[in-house]
C-alpha cells in the first residue's frame, strides 16, 4: 500500500460516511417526511376488499340471504364455519331446509376469502373490522345470523 492509496482510502471513506450523514441529517431536519400514523387516534380508512372478519349482512326486516347450502362450510380449509340447518314449512306449505344457526369460529379463520367466493347467494361478506382481541376466546365463536332472522324472499 503506497502512501497515496493510504490517504485516498481515508478521504474516500470519510466522503462516503459524510454522504450517509447528510441523508440522515436531512430527515432529522425535515419533519414533514415522518410517516408514522398515530394509531388509536387516527385510523386509516381500510379498502372495501380488506378481509377482517366474515359477517352476514341483514336487511331492515332482519332478513339474510343464507339458504344453509353449506357451500362455504365445504370451501373452508380450517373448519371455521359450522352450519346447523332446520326443516321449515314455507308459505307454499312445503317442507324446506333452512338455516338455523351459522356458527363462525373467528379464532380459526385465516381470512382466505374462499367461503365468500363459494357462496352462491352472496349471503356472507368480509367486514373491515380488525381489532379482534378479547380476553376470552369463547367470545370469538360467533353466530352470524341474527336471532329471529329469516331468509330473504326470492332467494333459492
Amino acid at each position: 500500500m503506497t502512501l497515496k492509496t493510504y490517504f485516498s482510502n481515508i478521504f474516500s471513506t470519510i466522503r462516503s460516511l459524510l454522504k450517509g450523514m447528510r441523508r440522515t441529517g436531512y430527515y432529522f431536519t425535515h419533519h414533514k417526511e415522518i410517516i408514522t400514523q398515530q394509531y388509536p387516534e387516527y385510523k386509516p380508512p381500510l379498502p372495501e376488499r380488506f378481509r377482517g372478519e366474515v359477517v352476514m349482512p341483514h336487511n331492515a326486516d332482519n332478513e339474510h340471504k343464507c339458504t344453509g347450502c353449506t357451500a362455504c362450510e365445504l370451501a373452508c380449509p380450517n373448519g371455521t364455519i359450522k352450519i346447523v340447518t332446520k326443516q321449515e314449512i314455507n308459505a307454499a306449505g312445503k317442507k324446506k331446509k333452512a338455516l338455523d344457526t351459522f356458527v363462525y369460529h373467528l379464532e380459526l379463520c385465516t381470512m382466505c376469502n374462499l367461503c365468500i367466493v363459494a357462496c352462491p347467494t352472496d349471503a356472507i361478506e368480509m367486514a373491515q373490522s380488525f381489532e379482534h382481541s378479547v380476553f376470552d376466546r369463547n367470545s370469538l365463536i360467533k353466530t352470524l345470523n341474527e336471532p329471529g332472522s329469516k331468509l330473504e324472499e326470492g332467494i333459492e
Binding site: 440522515t24 441529517g25 430527515y27 432529522f28 417526511e33 415522518i34 408514522t36 398515530q38
Partner: peptide, 13 residues
C-alpha cells in the same frame, strides 16, 4: 428523539 427523526418516526410522544 434523534433516532426517531432520523428514521422518519415520531419517537416517544
Amino acid at each position: 428523539k434523534v433516532s426517531a427523526y432520523m428514521q422518519i418516526r415520531l419517537g416517544p410522544n
